[in-house]
Amino acid sequence: MSEPTNKTITIDGREIPFEEGQTIMDAALAADIYIPHLCHRPGLSPHGSCKLCTVEVNGRSASACTLPASSGQEISNNTDALNEVRKTITQMLFVEGNHFCPSCEKTGNCTLQAVAYHLDMLDGHFPQFYPRREVDASHPGIMLDRDRCILCELCVRASREVDGKDVFAITGRGTDARLIVNSESGKLVDTNITTDDLAAHICPVGAILIKEEGYEVPIGRRTFDLHMVGEPGLEPVILRKGQHSDEH
């Protein structure tokens, strides 16, 4: 008998290969299978907090971005039931913060918004929480509007793992959890963040914005005006700033 050399998992009936050490998300992305996600970005350590990537592995609920792939996993991903769960989770993220899309500079480039469209979300459904959160406009180049923060910690990890700094952190507990800045004053201007940092660009929503770039790309030509969030290979496009997303 020969040892099977290729390790595989099955997502919605499609068998795909994986390498040792990959998560289900890694394997799916490599095979151009879209599993909705918000707190995950290839190249940063997995986080597992938004739960948008919830899948069912042999019938059990799991986060695709953190669960290691292992041979024989039967995974449900793009099912009506799971997409309904994801839609509800997205609605929960919307009502928990203050998201007024029409007045947000990120509109059209916002992954939260794009995911909501993808999941056919038509309203927030739940009563709004209307939290009071602080804006930090202290930095000359970067704006921090916590109203839109979804606590994904992408900026926290990007600053630590890629920029080699430690600019952001989460504080508080439960619905009091909020993003803070690592400086004596708690202000962005007193950190060593620059507009070249990945942390300044990685925010999936409009919580961290580069100043003086507002509306450079007109509405109608923004990332998700031209692309579907589930398109293969979109990650670099989402990150590319200050350019029309149909330019190269």
Partner: peptide
């Protein structure tokens, strides 16, 4: 603790 969306919200 506020870490994950389903429980926090």
């Amino acid at each position: 603790c506020g870490f994950c969306t389903p429980c926090r919200v």
